[in-house]
Design a protein around this nucleic acid. Structure first.
Lengths: 328, 328
DNA sequence: CTGAAAGCGCTTACAG
DNA sequence: CTGAAAGCGCTTACAG
């Protein structure tokens, strides 16, 4: 295994010179030496030992990604796609990515400490305890979709209120006046509350109020409930695309059709929704941009540790496809 | 930051004793010392520096996962789920996972060398060049779904021939006598050829031969082709679940219904297929087991480097759901 | 069962 | 622009 010492020897310089070239501190090395050293590096296909670099510099070019839960998390396309884009963006910056599933606080600290990671990205649901990291560790953290009111954190999120509002407006535009909402974890998630509020506020402005029993926590009897409250054509706002598919499936099993009997509008705009027929009308968020923004923000903290914590809110847009019936 | 030296000092022993305890070489330490040292480790919540460990031991508890392609690879649920299970199994063994998207040979060598990874898992499509690793590097490698005839590699695959055969038999059992096959990359992938052969051989035994124009390379005109060759009810064997969904969608757009007008049978049995209606009949492979087998095999090579290269073939089974019409 | 010595391959901090 | 010295935090290999 060729080391910095071998390169230095062959170049007739000190190891420090080689180190400077490796780290692209070109202003500290003569042009002549840069060229000579790089040539030898290439000749031997020399790869620096990351562990040695880490040990002496007390940091490493590793970004840790923490996913709440276990492997099943990646069955949800949202998480899988998000993970993919995060890794890609991290890789594009010359850093390596470690991925960990976690279930508790100490797991995170261990992984971060032992590898001296440069930074971390969190995604999935995190309880308040998790958010405290920010204070206990000095390495930069970025959360995604963590909408916490109490604790200031660096976060990349989307405009959930607007998403709910766009969904409502679209349905109103298509002449709907009979609504239901299907979600999960209403109480535990600020995200859902924002979508709900955006939806209800917009309907409210049009003089429509949603009754409490039209707000449904998804389970196996959701279709039954929807059918019960269906006086006329009912428009359902589901809080994710996957949830939309599940609802459509349940309705189909009861012999009802979308969009003929029920309209439905989802949230996320996952690739998978293009494979269904009818194609899902949905509130679209751009995961590619979201991941990029998360990594951008992380590297800003990496370069400027004293930068104040930011909560970045990305835009959403409505994508009209085939699951909302035009009643006009 | 507390180090092995601090622990040793407080325990009144050498750093070697602490190192032995950390590495669980308990037979080299007195019971008394084990207890004392472990208590102090816990007290300070001491976490070993992985870089230091790696530098002196010339290895690290890192497994690298290489995915051919870029972030888009994870849009395919198969890849995403597989990745999740792999990470989970690696983590369960106390190792950390680095994930890399790769497009060429040298990327792999760099990553493996610089971190002194203990082993690597490959998934996605790999050309012959990639398979050569096995000889150029001494760290253990496991491929998944790499069906190479020429070069011996360690691989976890499934019984694709049987999968094709099961699909054919199921359709025969349901009274079908009119068949088509939809796949991708027929020529580049031994996997597809095995599925094709299993399917055709089984039909052949029943006295049925598939005409060449019934073997279709998927594109946007696939439904048109299927409709053209549909004399009676046509049974389509698609080489993946995702492909099945795409075919169903195309057929729906032409006004045809599954399973009324066409029957379809997929391959993989992804979670996502339970969300569609009708639910997909498919050849099921167990990704959880596949990932576990891959990690098991990798660790066997890690522990017994001289073990001969194995090609493990996992079983598949047919899962009958709602996309195949019973013609009897 | 125990420990002193040397070294892994780099970077930091300093001096010139 | 250049380099000698020291050290990062562990483990290996050896001796007892």
């Amino acid at each position: 295994m060729v080391t910095i010492k071998d390169i230095a020897q062959e170049a007739g310089v000190s190891t420090m010179m080689v180190s400077r070239v490796i780290n692209k501190r070109y202003n500290q090395v003569s042009a002549e030496n840069i060229e000579r050293i790089e040539k030898i590096i290439k000749k031997y296909n020399y790869i620096p030992n990351s562990a040695a670099q880490s040990l002496s510099s007390k940091t490493s070019k590793i970004i840790a990604i923490f996913i709440q839960g276990d492997a099943n998390s990646l069955e949800h396309p949202y998480n899988a796609v998000m993970l993919g884009y995060l890794i890609q963006n991290i890789q594009a910056r010359g850093y390596d990515t470690m991925v960990h599933f976690i279930s508790n606080y100490s797991d995170v600290c261990n992984k971060l400490q032992s590898w001296k990671a440069s930074g971390a990205v969190f995604f999935g649901m995190f309880e308040k305890d998790f958010l405290q990291f920010q204070t206990n560790e000095k390495i930069p953290f970025v959360f995604t979709d963590c909408y916490s009111s109490s604790i200031p954190i660096a976060n990349i999120g989307i405009d959930n209120y607007k998403g709910g509002s766009l969904a409502a407006q679209h349905l109103l535009d298509y002449g709907h006046d009979n609504f239901a909402i299907v979600g999960e974890y209403f109480n535990e998630s600020l995200l859902n509350q924002q979508r709900l509020k955006g939806f209800c506020d917009t309907l409210s402005k049009a003089g429509i109020n949603i009754e409490q029993n039209h707000i449904i926590n998804f389970d196996s009897s959701t279709a039954t409930k929807l059918i019960e409250i269906q006086q006329a054509h009912l428009a359902v706002f589901a809080f994710s695309d996957i949830l939309s598919l599940k609802v459509i499936k349940q309705l189909n099993e009861h012999g009802y059709r979308v969009p003929d009997d029920f309209s439905i509008i989802g949230f996320d705009d996952l690739f998978i929704c293009h494979l269904t027929s009818p194609e899902l009308t949905t509130v679209s968020q751009n995961l590619s941009k979201k991941a990029e923004a998360a990594v951008d923000l992380l590297f800003q903290y990496l370069n400027y540790p004293d930068m104040p914590l930011q909560n970045i809110v990305l835009d959403v847009e409505l994508v009209s496809r085939d699951t909302v019936k035009n009643l006009l």
